[in-house]
Design a protein around this nucleic acid. Structure first.
Length: 346
DNA sequence: AAAACGGGGCT
DNA sequence: AGCCCAGTTTT
């Protein structure tokens, strides 16, 4: 049986109607691929529409400020994607006259474009036979061929890329790549796939050995570390507050937050009241401290659990660098902060 | 080779 | 609580 033919037949019947499937415009495909990295279609879709509405071309995106790009990206996570997106837009607009590179090799040089995204753009936009290997492809190939190499190991990366590259339909790489990903997303899905409906079930290793749930193999991630965040929500004279921009590396680079005091444990009022006295910002002024959420809000990231409390600091003193409270919604913030702003009546 | 990097959804 | 998601970059 012919893997590619079976796959493409399945795809022609079962593919979803998605906006980025109506085009081969590299700007549109690039944008969709960056948004969909580690992100489900359902979550990414509204962002794709919003970005195209706000920035119809790479030139529009290039002209925007990084703050505006981050603001529109707010809530999607992995904010380095947005910063790289903006940097690459500026490069393509200003250095390449708005014309995207048209080969896998050249695309790979752009910020934010790795092996997967270079392959996706090269195949979908330019019909280059570069195989995509995303989470779906790992799952489909590991099950069908019974490959027990961990997919998140260097050895696994190489092995699966090589296999996908051998398998790709060189006469129809754009459809083949999209078909194998769609097949993984909706038929050969992670949990409880209905293999009775699968066109590959007669020859699938995992199905025929009753091991569908055992593939793909993966090296287990380390457990998330706990952190304790205390945000100081200043309410000073004349409806002013304070936001700071997160500088340097680490989470939420270039996003804004209320002044943060990180502690080594969950703080109750008496604990924190003592600590706040020594915060530079509040050292020489009178203020009133209160706690917004008595139970810490647990914000779960893939590698950290942030136990977060918002402390309200009211003062009649005038502090430097404050902004009008009504303008806080204009700043790009992590969703943890965004949710607080929405729920707190200033 | 391993770690860092969000947030949402599902079981 | 654990796993997954149209991965890439840095260490």
């Amino acid at each position: 049986m012919n893997f590619s033919k079976t796959l493409k037949t399945w795809y022609s019947v079962n593919k979803r109607d998605l906006p980025w499937r109506q085009t081969t415009n590299p700007y549109h495909i690039w944008l969709s691929e960056i948004i969909l990295q580690q992100t489900q279609v359902k979550q990414g879709m509204p962002y794709y529409e919003a970005f195209l509405a706000e920035f119809p071309s790479v030139f529009h995106l290039a002209k925007a400020s990084e703050n505006d790009v981050l603001k529109l990206w707010q809530g999607l996570g992995y904010y380095s994607r947005a910063r790289n997106l903006h940097a690459t837009a500026k490069y393509v607009a200003n250095e390449l006259q708005g014309v995207f590179p048209n080969t896998y090799k050249e695309l790979l040089k752009l910020k934010g474009i790795g092996d997967y995204t270079a392959s996706a753009i090269a195949s979908i936009c330019f019909n280059e036979a570069a195989a995509v290997v995303d989470g779906n492809v790992y799952r489909v190939l590991s099950r069908y061929f019974g490959i027990d190499t961990a997919i998140n190991s260097t050895k696994g990366n190489k092995e699966f890329k090589l296999l996908a590259q051998e398998l790709i339909d060189k006469n129809d790489p754009a459809i083949f790549n999209q078909a194998i990903m769609e097949f993984g997303a909706t038929q050969c899905k992670p949990q409880s796939p209905d293999c009775s409906l699968c066109p590959f079930n007669a020859s699938c290793f995992a199905f025929n050995n009753n091991k569908v749930a055992s593939f793909p193999l993966k090296i287990k991630a380390a457990k998330a570390k706990k952190k304790y965040f205390n945000f100081l929500v200043i309410e000073s004279k004349n409806e002013q507050t304070l936001l700071e921009k997160r500088e340097g590396k680490g989470i939420w680079e270039n996003l804004y937050q209320f002044p943060l005091v990180e502690t080594n444990k969950d703080m109750d009022f008496d604990d924190f009241n003592e600590i706040v006295k020594n915060v530079d910002l509040l050292k020489n002024i009178d203020y009133h401290l209160s706690l917004f959420n008595s139970e810490a809000i647990v914000h779960k990231l893939s590698h950290q659990h942030l136990y977060s409390k918002f402390w309200i600091v009211k003062t009649d003193a005038s502090l430097p660098n404050t902004i009008a409270i009504e303008t806080v919604k204009e700043y790009p913030v992590p969703i943890l902060i965004g949710n607080f702003i929405e729920s707190f009546y200033f």
